[in-house]
């Protein structure tokens, strides 16, 4: 079978072809093995129209970063981006304290989001993700989000 792989250094091995796996509609981590190909920078036509919030837990402990379209990045204790971010940050400044546990933080986050929210917040129109000291980043399920929303009422 290996004779069928006509590959040379840094060329792309087409994994999918040789497997009987059906390609799922949401691409799995498999896609990330397709490295080395067409990765020479070609863009730069316009900046990215996004700011990011990156959350993680590593050897340094928990951390939260913001990255802006300019490439500038900041570490935050708590912050907001997007529509109404000024009010969101002002609200967080009042509510945040250093001793906060993750459970409280989730509640505070939802309260802050609700401040500027048009209409009612439900488990379908928001997303929540956490990373705790087990160091597993995960999105909460709709049921988990609903539980938090019910507690907040």
């Amino acid at each position: 079978m290996s004779i069928m792989h006509h590959t040379s250094y840094s060329s792309n091995i087409k994994l999918i072809k040789h497997h009987t796996l059906l390609y799922p509609t949401t691409p799995p981590i498999l896609t990330h093995f397709h490295t080395h190909d067409n990765f020479q920078q070609s863009g730069g036509v316009r900046p990215f129209g996004v700011s990011l919030l990156v959350a993680g837990y590593d050897d340094e402990g928990p951390s939260l970063y913001q990255v802006d379209p300019s490439g500038a990045y900041f570490g935050w204790k708590a912050t907001a981006i997007g529509k109404n971010y000024v009010n969101g940050k002002a609200f967080l400044e009042k509510r945040f304290n250093e001793e906060m546990e993750l459970e409280d933080a989730v509640h505070t986050a939802l309260l802050t989001l609700r401040e500027g929210f048009e209409g009612e917040m439900t488990c379908d129109n928001i997303e929540v993700a956490v990373v705790d000291d087990t160091r597993v980043f995960r999105s909460l399920t709709a049921a988990e989000i609903q539980d938090y929303l019910d507690e907040a009422k």
Binding site: G49, V50, S51, L53, A55, G56, Y57, P62, S63, L64, D68, P69, W76, K77, A78, T79, A80, I81, G82, K83, N84, Y85, G88, L92, F96, E98, E99, M100, E101, L102, D104, A105, V106, T108, A109, L110, T112, L113, G116, F117, N125, I126, E127, V128, A129, V130, V131, D132, D133
Partner: peptide
Amino acid sequence: VSNGRTSLGIRARNGVVIVTDK
């Protein structure tokens, strides 16, 4: 970005949470 849906995050003592309006 500031016309986009709100996202926010809080770093707690023992973890981090991020939430977003979708």
